[in-house]
Design a protein around this nucleic acid. Structure first.
Lengths: 131, 131
DNA sequence: CATCTGTTATATTACATATATAACAGATAT
DNA sequence: ATATCTGTTATATATGTAATATAACAGATG
């Protein structure tokens, strides 16, 4: 799977990495049980520090998207993905609220807003975990 | 309009302020042309520094949500709100993408995702700018 | 003229990000 | 066994952002 890091972005590198791996799982580019590159090799490929990769991996593990076996490496969660519990929906609403507020201010109604969401859902395709 | 700042949040104070003012406009709690508190008085009310408020105001002005008259103070954009152009939708997609990806991983389908968006739309009510 | 407005400037503190190096502990392959 | 791979821990450093503190400025208002 191709990963691109924008060093000029205001988004931290480890967050870019976290998001792109989650997006890879969602799209099916990364399949359950698939192994991820080691922190050292991925860091070398991307030209960044291994601790930056480690930070992304640790966060991915904390949220249940990957497993890390101390001496074998990291792999995409082979079992059930973390469930969408109340905590998840709470955080989702919290992150969604400012986006909806800005959209409303600009006259974007619910229908158009959901069209954008729908386009994103279709972008990730039917091959992913949620299919 | 009531504003609450969480000093423990990982979200910067000026971002919290920015978001809550935009949400106030979206909900109708802040009406076009309405004056906002001065940077000094709002900072004193919230127990924070006036530069932190100034940073939020400057950003709100840059995005077109408020006007700032150098000696009269700040007021909610009385004319047309900033339009939802291609740039806006581009940024919206960029911020929405990781949320959608996480939702897909957790088995949340498009329908349920849009239900959350719809609930937020209804939270802001019919009194706002977009009504 | 005093007082209000946002703005600019300077300095300082605290924290997050990212890097660099080194070492450790466990598993694996030779 | 020994070298090599894994994530992990530890320490140190550099950089940038966030937030604060003070002070001053320029324009409008009472």
């Amino acid at each position: 799977m191709l990963i691109r890091i924008d060093l000029q972005s205001d988004e931290p590198i480890y967050v870019q990495l976290f998001n792109q791996i989650v997006e890879g799982i969602a799209s099916g580019a990364l399949r359950p049980g698939e192994t991820l590159p080691s922190v050292r090799s991925l860091a070398a490929d991307l030209g960044i520090n291994l601790h930056t990769v480690g930070k992304a991996y640790t966060q991915l593990r904390q949220e249940g998207y990957i497993q890390i076996h101390r001496q074998k490496g990291a792999l995409v969660q082979p079992g059930p993905m973390p469930e969408a519990d109340g905590e998840f929906f709470g955080k989702l609403e919290k992150r969604l609220r400012p986006l909806v507020a800005e959209a409303i201010c600009r006259g974007v109604d619910e229908r158009r807003f959901c069209e954008v969401c729908g386009r994103l859902y279709r972008q990730f395709g039917k091959g992913g975990v949620g299919a």
